[in-house]
Amino acid sequence: MVEEEIRFTKEHEWIIIKEGLAVMGISDFAQRQLGDIVSIELPRVGSRFGYMQAMAIIDSVKASSDIYSALSGEVVEVNEELLEHPEWINQSPYELGWIVKMKASNMEEEEVNSLMPNEQYNKFVGEMEMEKEKEGEDERAGRR
């Protein structure tokens, strides 16, 4: 992965490599789906996670969601300010709302390849939204 380039998981986490560390959070689409975020449970600094292992939990008013590690590695820093300001994830998902910084273990090619660049992710989300819209229409047509 290139420094400063944003990539996304299929579960809507984002990851950016900055100064050799991987910064992670959840995408704007994800925060919109969750709605008002009211609390977060962060991992401990020093804990290790495998690729796509649950590492944090976000509670919104409506639902609780696991947040997955976009790579294998060790947590070196967590955004403790989110404990007081979980709403930052809604307000600023890519800046104030970052969740953890991790030191990557040797990244498997498979892991990197499954992470989507910005353009591909937007397409992925667009298709999901269309699918949802279509499902809704089918559902409504079926009920008529």
């Binding site: 009211v38 609390s39 977060i40 449970e41 939990i57 509670d59 008013v61 609780s64 404990l83």
Partner: peptide
Amino acid sequence: EVLEKRIAR
């Protein structure tokens, strides 16, 4: 009232 920051469901 949950005394920690989690939402019960």
